[in-house]
């Protein structure tokens, strides 16, 4: 039971990569990639959790209460926003690929054309 968080992270990663490999539409591929990214968030936050810990903000709780790890939350926080922007870049690539080659199927976009 204590492994459930990590196993869910591994499952999300594997499922996301499977979606990327067998995708037939570039936009579908980008969203499967975002599922694989979400697995890293789950793993990070699972590592930092402390049983009985509070959120790491001492606004109204005394400074001596045990809190969960703030370092992994800092990493995940920036990653969520930046990951969405990188997905935007990939979607822009998909739109341009469709404009130039007429297809968004990754299998048909395999010729290197100048």
């Amino acid at each position: 039971m204590s492994l459930l968080a990590y196993v869910v992270a591994v499952w999300l990663f594997v499922v996301g990569i499977y979606g990327v490999v067998t995708s037939r539409h570039l936009v579908h591929l980008v969203m499967c990639l975002s599922v694989a990214q979400a697995s890293t968030y789950v793993l990070l936050l699972g590592i930092g959790y402390r049983k009985g810990g509070q959120a790491p903000i001492f606004g109204d709780i005394p400074s001596s209460t045990p809190v969960v790890d703030p370092v992994v939350q800092a990493l995940t926080l920036t990653d969520v926003v930046v990951g969405a922007t990188v997905s935007a870049l990939l979607l822009a690539l998909a739109v341009q690929a469709h404009k130039r080659f007429g297809s968004v199927d990754p299998d048909e976009l395999n010729a290197l054309r100048g």
Binding site: S34, A55, I57, L77, V80
Partner: peptide
């Protein structure tokens, strides 16, 4: 549920507005 309100805020905002 894992006591990470900052991350939850960012995820809600990104997942509802951007993606």
């Amino acid at each position: 549920a894992v006591e990470a309100p900052d991350v939850a805020l960012s995820q809600i905002v990104v997942g509802a507005i951007v993606v």
